[in-house]
């Protein structure tokens, strides 16, 4: 396990590379999902408002 983590002495190169990749890609995924959820909420509110104003 220790040998695996050491990456043949290149731990400082290999692990940060994978880490940065994960942070950026997962970060964008999470950001996109949250943006989607927020917009869905806003859209639902607007649609509901429209319904109400149509049939008061």
């Amino acid at each position: 396990m220790a040998a695996f983590l050491d990456m043949g002495g290149y731990a400082a190169t290999v692990w940060p590379s994978y880490g940065v990749t994960a942070v950026i890609l997962i970060g964008l995924l999470v950001f996109s999902l949250r943006q989607l959820a927020k917009r869905r909420e806003q859209l639902d509110a607007l649609e509901a408002e429209r319904e109400r104003s149509r049939n008061p």
Binding site: L29, S32, L33, Q35, L36, R39, L43, E49, R50, S53
Partner: peptide, 29 residues
């Protein structure tokens, strides 16, 4: 993964466009 992200983001863009249309309607009303 790109396809997954793209589908999520397109859906989000569609909603943003729809939101803008509804907001314009409200402003006009």
């Amino acid at each position: 993964f790109y396809v997954v992200l793209l589908l999520i983001r397109i859906r989000s863009e569609l909603m943003a466009r729809r939101i803008e249309v509804l907001q314009r309607h409200r402003a006009a009303e």
